[in-house]
C-alpha cells in the first residue's frame, strides 16, 4: 500500500510554492499543532495525561505561549515578506466561479475515492479556496482572542468572556479544517503530488496540468506568452 506518491525528479516539474510560502506553511503547522495539543489539555476534561507530556499543566501553558508567539512571528514574517504572494493568493480566492462550485459539490465523492470528473481549476481548487478562507480566519480569531486571554487585565471584562468561547470555537473549526486538510495534503490518493509542492516546492507538470489546468496554462502553458 502506498502512503504518498513517490517523488520523481526525472520528470518535468513546475514550481508551486516558493521558499517563503513553504517556510511559513510548515512553521505555522508546527506552532499550530503545539498550541492545539497544549490547549486541548485544558479544553478536554481529565486530560492530565496530555498535560503530562508537556510537564504538567503549567508546562503546557508555557509551551502554549511560546508556540503562540512563534505562530505570531511566522504569520507576521509571511505577511510582510510574502506580501505579493498573499495578494496573489487572495486574488485567486476571489476568482470563485462555477468550476469551484462544481468542485465542492462533487468533492464528497472524490474524498472517499470515487472517480469523478471536475471542471478545470485555477491555482487553488474550490476546496482549497474554502480552506484558504476558513482556516486563516480561524487562526486570526485564535491569535486575537488568545492575546486577550493572556493579558486580560488590559481589556474590558466582557471582552475577555467573549474571548473564551471564541478561542474554543475557532480552535474546533480550525482543527476540523486542518485535520481534513492535513490528510488531503498528504495521504489522500486523489491529491497525489500536492504534498511535494509544499515540501520541495515543485510538482510534476502533468499533475499540474491535470489538477489545476487553468493555473498551469496561465503560468507555464500557452496562455503565459499570450498575456
Amino acid at each position: 500500500m502506498q502512503w504518498i506518491p513517490e517523488y520523481k525528479a526525472d520528470v518535468p516539474r513546475v514550481e508551486r510554492f516558493n521558499f517563503l510560502a513553504r517556510f511559513s506553511h510548515w512553521g505555522h503547522t508546527v506552532t499550530f499543532l503545539l498550541c492545539l495539543f497544549t490547549g486541548l489539555a485544558l479544553f478536554l476534561s481529565d486530560a492530565g495525561w496530555l498535560a503530562a507530556i508537556f510537564g504538567g499543566y503549567a508546562g503546557a501553558g508555557l509551551v502554549h505561549r511560546i508556540a503562540a508567539v512563534g505562530l505570531t512571528i511566522i504569520l507576521a514574517i509571511g505577511m510582510v515578506a510574502g506580501f505579493k504572494g498573499i495578494i496573489a493568493w487572495f486574488q485567486d480566492i476571489l476568482r470563485f466561479g462555477v468550476n469551484d462550485i462544481m468542485f465542492i459539490v462533487k468533492f464528497p465523492l472524490e474524498f472517499f475515492g470515487f472517480p469523478v470528473k471536475v471542471p478545470p481549476q485555477t491555482r487553488f481548487n474550490g476546496g482549497e479556496k474554502g480552506n484558504s478562507m476558513v482556516t486563516p480566519t480561524m487562526v486570526i480569531l485564535l491569535v486575537l482572542s488568545g492575546y486577550i486571554m493572556w493579558f486580560p487585565a488590559i481589556f474590558p471584562g466582557g471582552l475577555v468572556r467573549v474571548a473564551y468561547w471564541t478561542h474554543d470555537i475557532a480552535m474546533v473549526l480550525g482543527t476540523v479544517m486542518v485535520s481534513m486538510h492535513a490528510y488531503l495534503g498528504s495521504f489522500h490518493p486523489g491529491s497525489g503530488e500536492s504534498f511535494w509542492g509544499m515540501w520541495k516546492g515543485t510538482v510534476r507538470a502533468d499533475w499540474a496540468k491535470h489538477h489545476h489546468a487553468i493555473w498551469y496554462e496561465e503560468t507555464y502553458g500557452d496562455k503565459k506568452d499570450a498575456e
Binding site: P5, P189, G190, G192, E193
Partner: peptide, 8 residues
C-alpha cells in the same frame, strides 16, 4: 491507472 500522479 487512476492514481498515477493523482487524478483530477
Amino acid at each position: 491507472a487512476h492514481t498515477e500522479g493523482g487524478h483530477e
